[in-house]
Amino acid sequence: MRYVKPQSFEAAATLLHEEAGIARILAGGTDVLVQLKAEMVEPDLMVDLKHLPGMREIVAEDGGFRVGAAVSGAEMGEHAALKAMWPGVVEGVELIGSSQVQSRATMAGNLCTGSPAGDSVPAMVTAGAVARVQGPDGVRDVPVVDIPTGPGKNSLAKGEFITSILLPARPDTASDAYLRFIPRTEMDIAVSSAAVSLELDSDGVVTAAHVAVGAVAPTVLLVQDAGVALVGSKLDDAAIAGLVAAVEAACNPITDKRGTIEFRTKTAGVLAKRAAHIAYARAGGQA
């Protein structure tokens, strides 16, 4: 295995593009290094990107925040302004792994790994986050929701990688929340998960709502109908029932060692309901 630390994004893209064998990108490394140790993969090329400009930075941009692809979960958790604006996204990232893993694990890595259970993905999706992608032919911006395509798969072409993720601006009367179900209290992978992002008017009525669920389909799902069910409400019982019904209808999970189809579907609805109430309270809404 060759380990390379290229001096520019362009050089990195070229290297990755031209590699005939198996190439892996090293940002946080919390998936790649585990896969290496478990002998799941033997890359021919490992490209380290963490040192490149902006990779480790969180910068304000157009009222939102651009988060470098090698920024760790712990760094996001310590960024007060980011956390105040997108608490659901940050709490999702902070659920990945242990404290030790948190000092390395990245949101971009969690996204590119393509796990339907990735903890940072549902809230990124409901936030409308946009990934900046470097490739051999230049830079493009891709909505986060379009990156994962199935378990372990993503839409990036050979030689492409994410350099940063933009979490856009939002008004003060808006917030988000993320919840996952795990059989333990930490150190686990979501059996099901849900993120809800809400915007309220001055009366506390929901004016915009986005709902995403994880681990209940091959990719994280943005459930449009679930958001629609909440708009115009103050999360009354009927709106919540509509949310739960829409989430359950959207779920397309599998039965495996972590949970059954029935269990995943039921809990996804429960988590969406609970996350909606948390997001609503965070946005200043009074139930």
């Binding site: 333990r184 209290t185 686990d188 992978i189 972590r258």
Partner: peptide, 14 residues
């Protein structure tokens, strides 16, 4: 489930 991810012993916070 031959690993501590899916063979779930309690963790301290449990």
């Amino acid at each position: 489930n031959a690993g501590f991810l899916d063979y779930r012993v309690p963790v301290a916070s449990d």
